[in-house]
Amino acid sequence: MSLIWIAVIVLGAVGLIAAVVLFVASKKFAVEEDPRIAQISEVLPQANCGGCGYPGCSGFAGACVKAADAGSIEGMLCPVGGQPVMEKVASILGMEAAAATPKVAVVRCNGTCENRPRVVEFDGVRSCRVALMTGTGETACAFGCLGCGDCVNACQFGAIKINPQTGMPEVDENLCTACGACAKACPRKIIELRPKGPKGRRMVVKCVNRDKGVVANKVCKASCIGCGKCVKACPFEAITLANNLAYIDPEKCRLCRKCEEACPKGAIHAVNFPPRKPKTEAETPAQENKN
């Protein structure tokens, strides 16, 4: 019996001493932190993706508090949580959140296996940055996607996958949080964050080849050759041409899809539109007959 008592007393004493030490330590070494930081951290997604540009969510929370103390939290955006989260953050800080346009990652290259022939075989670590060091990668295109999936590895949300058929990364728009990690990881800066557009619809030039038309045409069937037909076709002056590349300004674009028809290379893509009405399909053979 006494054995049990000894055990209980010893264990109890050890527990008590440990508790006292812990209590003293927690009081003595406590780090004072603005309580708002903890509150903000709670509403953040806690993915620690770094998409905001700060080291993790608590870093972002600290930056928000600092910005609020300085007067405004404008420009602070958690790309993952988006507007709803920023509104919560703003309410904690007693401010109004600025309106932000929802964005999505856009892969600006359509150099699929079919469009862009592989001229050499790359042997080495499957990393775009390593492939880049060997030269232009497996294709002759000095600007396009290398297809080794650095963006896939960078994505914390599983929103990008390499399509094995095309060898190209594809963004799942439902999962994409526009954190920008893929854009940062891409050594050729092919991925860009773009406004989602009304109902997710937008027009995109899927090519980044800045070479002259002749060269760009040779390396890829779907390259933008900078011919400028889309510029002429656009009724809203939304398209500009620079470095042998067309650029569609999402602010000005009214989604009329005229540029898509005008592009001789099929480099302009209409995203998330419903399938074309049968009318247009009927038109095409008619045109062919005329020719």
């Binding site: 001229v119 050499v120 075989e121 790359f122 042997d123 030269g135």
Partner: peptide
């Protein structure tokens, strides 16, 4: 016949 292989040294 076959493509050249490219790799780093």
């Amino acid at each position: 016949a076959n493509k050249l292989i490219v790799s780093l040294s």
